[in-house]
Design a protein around this nucleic acid. Sequence first.
DNA 1: TGCCATATACCGTCTGGCCGGTACAGTACC
DNA 2: GGTACTGTACCGGCCAGACGGTATATGGCA
Lengths: 184, 184
Amino acid sequence: MSPPTTRDKIIDAAMAVVREQGVAKLTLDEAAKGAGLSKGGVLYHFKTKDDLIRGMVERLINQCDKLQLAYYDKEPEGPYRWARAMVQTTFDPNGPASDKVSGALLASVAVNSELVAPIQAKYDEWIERIRSDSPSPMLAGLIGMAMDGYSFERIMGLKLCDEEDEMKMKQYILDLLKAEPTHE
Amino acid sequence: MSPPTTRDKIIDAAMAVVREQGVAKLTLDEAAKGAGLSKGGVLYHFKTKDDLIRGMVERLINQCDKLQLAYYDKEPEGPYRWARAMVQTTFDPNGPASDKVSGALLASVAVNSELVAPIQAKYDEWIERIRSDSPSPMLAGLIGMAMDGYSFERIMGLKLCDEEDEMKMKQYILDLLKAEPTHE
DNA sequence: TGCCATATACCGTCTGGCCGGTACAGTACC
DNA sequence: GGTACTGTACCGGCCAGACGGTATATGGCA
């Protein structure tokens, strides 16, 4: 990996602002300060604030997608392979539930709901993937919903259980995907 | 039900703004316009904007709680009664996935993350409830996460399937809660 | 090798608009 | 005449975006 470009540094800083101070505090000035340059500099790389958020969303999507593909490779073959990869991705510290990337979603919804569109597109793709190799699409769908729930809870700052319980839950879900090759 | 108070009308209008224009557009002026009065009028009822959001959050909590209790009464006795009530609540058109109430959560997170606190408190209570009568707390927890996922997806404007599939999913989940009285 | 031209990357300043909040002046009903 | 409520006018701060400028690198060319 080459050293992060200025563009990347700005996105990092913007994510950090959302995480630490909330979406409302995400200003060009603040992002600039975090990235170590001036607002003018930020506006050189991103023409508008919406553009910056687009960049954040793109980062979110790429990061999650890359992660999911990596986990897919690591998972053994067999039914529910994509679903298993999704579970691993969700609980990964760099996954969608991570503070580091999730700000993008929040920012996009808060500022301009049109900016969610690329997420929706990728989202459809993910769902399609998971359905493709799941003997019970319903079970896979349920678990997919739950993974979203987990991610969103983290983003919103709602805690439903401590970390120990989370690991148990992860294992429980993975067991479900082993034990029920052809449920229904 | 007595006719809605001005206070209620303001909250309704604020919710509508969040729903239709996004959190960023939620201003005192806009909420006032929606409620049919001036900003001064709004500020008479809510001393600050945070105060208004607190009101929205309170509304969200009360509405969901009331709904859940009502469904609990309607559900037949037996295991997973609270979990079943939660599923019904989630899919209810006035439930947490409803456009009409969900804006509160978004607004609170976006504007001032401290305002989420009352939600977290209620949230803990709901989780406790569900665990209390679930033979498999893991299954109940999974379904709870999925219900959150569904609600949040709606709030964010992400669609995972059409309405027909949603109803199938609801039925699938309710069947799970019948078929597995003592899973694990 | 020296000179100009252009592109890239960035800074600092300014401005116009928006928005939260204040102050105060009604109005209407009891 | 007081209380509950609503409107109007305004202030001060913040912020997106525009703009003009600067420094450095690159490349052509004589």
